[in-house]
């Protein structure tokens, strides 16, 4: 009954969002003025080679078929879906003939690892600090936390990243300057490689965590400072419940609900990549991949990355919807 009333409508909504999103991904690149087939042909002829017009025509047709640009729009659309279901996103135009899915497969673990760790860390620290601030508003610790969280947050991200890089990779060369792992390192599941990986990931993760803590802190502080005025918290005080219990079970427990929504939404965004981080720290990842794909008009790659993003965000939304009743009984059975 609950399954029918709660789960099925949300699952249908999820599928609808996916369908619309993926269709938009199909339509939008086709509205662009540049034609990737012409682009590719121009590149070939620009090299000064003489090409027989008939051969050019033949090549155009082959390219169109490869790129999924053959035939009318409807025909292309149906082929597009057919390819999607077989996990084939087509070849990349710029790194022809490597399939898009393979490029994404290489970049995705880097991005996902980097963003997931920094998101979870900043969320956890920001939420706990926000809770501390509200529970002990006049303590010195709370004031120091607030001062730093509010002071660091407005710093633009790229400046923060560059400062960290200059400080800890150049002035005090504690951490490596570029890359995801040392050049020539043996890739494998062993302690040496993992330590190397962590050392390389430390600065990029830090740069994001330090700034994002502020955002989570402020959200938690604002929500919790409303919760603290709620009748049930005041009444818990009036009944003499221990302070620790009031903080965790009454204040934090209620204030954390919007925090979890925020976390889940942000989890969906980890497939979009972190472009500036990747550029500043020369870190491999989806952001750079997408950026170069946009510059080169590499439709298939753009579409591939976007499809991952869409699936990521909407799956995150579905998961929030499904776990929400566990967090907040008031939305149960609705």
């Amino acid at each position: 009954m609950v399954f029918k009333k709660y789960f099925i409508p949300r699952f249908i909504q999820y599928l609808t969002v996916l369908f619309i999103g993926i269709t938009l991904v199909f339509i939008i690149p086709r509205l662009l003025p540049s034609d990737p087939v012409e682009h590719q042909l121009n590149r070939m002829t620009a090299q000064g080679q003489y090409l027989d017009p008939a051969a050019v025509e033949e090549m155009r047709e082959t390219l169109q078929e490869l790129y999924g640009l053959k035939g009318g729009l409807l025909e292309q659309y149906l082929i597009y879906w057919k390819r999607l279901f077989t996990g084939n996103l087509g070849p990349s135009f710029t790194q022809f003939p490597t399939p898009v899915i393979q490029l994404i497969k290489i970049s995705l673990p880097w991005t996902a690892g980097l963003l997931l760790v920094s998101l979870l860390l900043s969320w956890l620290i920001g939420t706990v600090l926000g809770g501390i601030k509200v529970s002990f508003p006049n303590s010195i610790v709370a004031k120091i936390i607030e001062f730093f969280a509010m002071g660091i947050r407005p710093i633009p991200y790229y400046i923060m990243a560059l400062v960290l890089l200059i400080l800890f990779a150049f002035v005090f060369p504690v951490f490596p300057m570029t890359g995801g792992y040392s050049m020539g390192a043996e890739i494998g599941f062993n302690l040496k490689f993992i330590l190397d990986l962590l050392r390389h990931a430390f600065l990029p993760i830090m740069s994001m965590v330090v700034l994002e803590i502020g955002g989570w802190f402020i959200q938690m502080r604002n929500v919790a400072s409303n919760v603290i005025e709620e009748d049930y918290v005041v009444y818990a005080e009036a009944l003499g419940l221990p302070k620790i219990k009031i903080i965790f079970r009454y204040i934090m427990r209620n204030a954390i609900i919007p925090q979890i929504t925020g976390l889940a939404l942000n989890l969906g965004f980890i497939f979009g990549g972190a472009l500036i981080t990747e550029i500043v720290f020369s870190y491999p990842g989806i952001g750079t991949l997408l950026y170069s794909a946009i510059l080169a008009g590499d439709y298939n790659l753009i579409m591939g990355v976007n499809i991952f993003s869409i699936v990521g965000v909407s799956t995150a939304m579905l998961i929030i919807d499904l776990i929400y009743p566990l967090l907040d009984p008031r939305v149960r059975y609705q």
């Binding site: 709620e230 009748d231 427990r253 907040d328 009984p329």
Partner: peptide
């Protein structure tokens, strides 16, 4: 106002 004196998530 006992409407809201009980913790809504407990």
């Amino acid at each position: 106002g006992s409407m809201s004196v009980l913790n809504p998530v407990r």
